[in-house]
């Protein structure tokens, strides 16, 4: 699935009527099977962009198209992984993963056994088969994140929208999950089998490691500053992180957002 943002603008209207522009004139295309990462300082509207593609928020102006059709609301073709996991606390790991299949349209026509098989396969894929009967509050942050990923993958949305999914994790877990994310996305397989991904982060190294293209945004209001192609070879692995090109691209992106980041940190 391809996603097209055409001169998208989003204003938030406060209760007193004051309008705050959050996103200004964002145009961006996500190609079929492409891994696009948005980086930018806080307040640059990256989450707003993601929510608009998800259909959770409407643009004030401009258009968002999914495979050429305008986005009018949430849909199972565009799955979202939220920043703080958004797991259902009253359901076990396996029940969380089965949730979209059992109660949403994605599982229509699937028998209980078929759903069970899909859940098992997805849990194995993310390495959670042993934790299937635990409740979310019994899991570490990294495991919760895997549950959220498994729940997202279980109903096979065509586009994966991921809002800072790894932000709350420690550095080591983060590195491991970056590797796994690329594996699950299918970086070892043919490009045609990959799903379209939009991934948000504020970590530049993470962006460069994962992305085909990095969208650098600036804030107040959020605009696209530059789109940086990342032509590092796939599959990417630990050697990628040591690649001089990796460092060069990361340096370039840092130079783009450095001033704003300093201003935000010192104000």
């Amino acid at each position: 699935m391809t996603i097209d943002l055409q001169s998208v603008r989003k204003e938030f209207v406060a209760r007193d009527g004051a309008r705050t522009p959050a996103v200004e004139d964002v145009s961006l295309t996500l190609g079929e099977g492409e891994f696009v990462v948005i980086v930018g300082p806080s307040g640059c509207g990256k989450t707003t962009v993601l929510n608009m593609i998800a259909g959770l928020e409407r643009p004030t102006a401009g258009a968002i198209l999914a495979d050429g059709r305008p986005v009018t609301g949430p849909g199972v073709d565009r799955g979202v992984m939220f920043q703080d996991y958004a797991l259902f606390p009253w359901r076990t790991v396996a029940e969380n993963v089965a949730f979209p299949l059992r109660f949403g349209p994605a599982g229509a026509g699937l028998s209980g056994a078929a759903i069970g098989d899909r859940v098992d396969a997805t849990l194995t894929l993310v390495g959670l088969a042993a934790a299937r009967d635990k409740y979310p509050h019994q899991l570490s942050g990294g495991m919760r994140q895997r549950v959220a990923l498994a729940r997202l993958l279980s109903y096979e949305p065509k586009v994966l929208l991921m809002d800072e999914p790894l932000a709350a994790l420690d550095a080591q877990t983060r590195t491991i999950l970056q590797d796994e994310l690329l594996r699950i996305w299918g970086q070892d397989g043919p490009a045609a089998s990959r799903r379209t991904v939009l991934f948000i982060t504020h970590a530049i190294d993470e962006a460069v490691f994962l992305a085909d293209r990095v969208v650098v945004m600036s804030s107040h209001p959020g605009r696209v500053r530059e789109i940086v192609p990342v032509d590092l070879p796939r599959p990417r692995n630990d050697a990628t992180r040591a690649d001089p090109d990796f460092q060069r691209i990361a340096q370039h992106i840092w130079s783009l957002i450095k001033n704003e980041a300093y201003r935000a940190a010192t104000s």
């Binding site: 998800a54 959770l56 609301g73 949430p74 939220f82 958004a86």
Partner: peptide, 19 residues
């Protein structure tokens, strides 16, 4: 956030209330 998550999974309003 949980309500939004359910919306992105395509649940109807009545399913969101119940589930």
């Amino acid at each position: 956030k949980l309500v939004r998550a359910a919306e992105t999974m395509g649940l109807s309003q009545s399913a969101i209330v119940a589930r």
